Amino acid sequence: MTRLFNVGDKVVYPMYGAGIIEAIEEKEILGEKKCYYVMRMPIGDMKVMVPIQSVDEIGLRQVVDEEVINQVIGRLKLESTDQSTNWNRRYRANMDKMKSGDIYEIADVVRNLMLREREKGLSTGERKMLENAKTIFISELALAKDLTEEEAIALLDNIIYEKNASI
């Protein structure tokens, strides 16, 4: 069954990030009329149209609440989880986590890649993945805690780098 969101709801679009539903519109595209959520993504300042009947398939969900964000922040403070030394395997595992749309999984990708970048450096592909994962994570963090993009970035950097400063 399709979940119904309302104008003003804060939602997450897996692989794109969090945004706010600004409108619900009916559009005719390729001769077919469909209803769409029109989402404004504050980070990157873009608009996305999501077909309402595809919401479940896409995995659109509410932005998590403050309690969940605080649990995620606690998880960010943990040591990096074991990851394959094989770049390809590690990349695929991280991509699966990001596609899940689960904030805990995305936080793991962000933490692990930020720490790996500092310790060993990242390949171009993993650096792009880290930037994408950070954008997705920061967009939800900002909406959940009512922060600006800059405040959310600073909070993430403080959590990751302060906790692991002794490494």
Results as ranks from 00 to 15, higher is better:
residue 14 P to M: 04
residue 142 A to K: 11
residue 42 P to V: 08
residue 148 T to E: 13
residue 147 L to Q: 08
residue 141 L to D: 15
residue 64 V to H: 03
residue 9 D to K: 05
residue 117 E to L: 01
residue 101 G to T: 13
residue 52 I to W: 00
residue 128 K to F: 14
residue 163 K to Y: 11
residue 129 M to V: 09
residue 166 S to A: 13
residue 141 L to W: 01
residue 124 T to Q: 06
residue 109 V to G: 07
residue 68 V to S: 04
residue 125 G to N: 14
residue 134 K to I: 08
residue 166 S to C: 07
residue 40 R to T: 10
residue 17 G to L: 07
residue 76 L to A: 01
residue 93 A to V: 02
residue 121 G to S: 10
residue 123 S to L: 07
residue 16 Y to P: 05
residue 81 T to A: 14
residue 70 N to F: 03
residue 62 Q to N: 09
residue 39 M to F: 14
residue 118 R to D: 06
residue 48 V to M: 10
residue 105 E to S: 12
residue 54 S to Y: 09
residue 53 Q to T: 05
residue 78 L to P: 03
residue 3 R to W: 01
residue 4 L to R: 12
residue 76 L to T: 01
residue 15 M to N: 13
residue 36 Y to C: 12
residue 44 G to H: 06
residue 89 R to F: 02
residue 132 N to H: 15
residue 72 V to I: 02
residue 54 S to P: 04
residue 152 A to K: 07
residue 141 L to G: 10
residue 15 M to A: 10
residue 41 M to W: 08
residue 10 K to D: 15
residue 149 E to C: 05
residue 150 E to D: 11
residue 56 D to I: 12
residue 142 A to H: 15
residue 49 M to G: 08
residue 152 A to G: 08
residue 102 D to E: 08
residue 50 V to D: 12
residue 46 M to H: 03
residue 105 E to A: 10
residue 153 I to M: 02
residue 111 R to H: 05
residue 138 I to K: 07
residue 26 E to T: 15
residue 143 L to E: 00
residue 162 E to K: 12
residue 56 D to C: 12
residue 55 V to D: 00
residue 91 Y to I: 09
residue 28 E to T: 14
residue 31 G to T: 07
residue 9 D to L: 00
residue 126 E to K: 06
residue 135 T to S: 12
residue 150 E to T: 13
residue 80 S to E: 13
residue 133 A to H: 02
residue 4 L to P: 03
residue 2 T to R: 15
residue 4 L to V: 13
residue 79 E to H: 12
residue 54 S to T: 03
residue 161 Y to W: 04
residue 37 Y to L: 14
residue 165 A to I: 07
residue 160 I to R: 02
residue 49 M to N: 14
residue 4 L to M: 11
residue 29 I to H: 03
residue 28 E to G: 02
residue 67 E to V: 09
residue 140 E to A: 06
residue 150 E to G: 13
residue 4 L to C: 05
residue 17 G to Q: 11
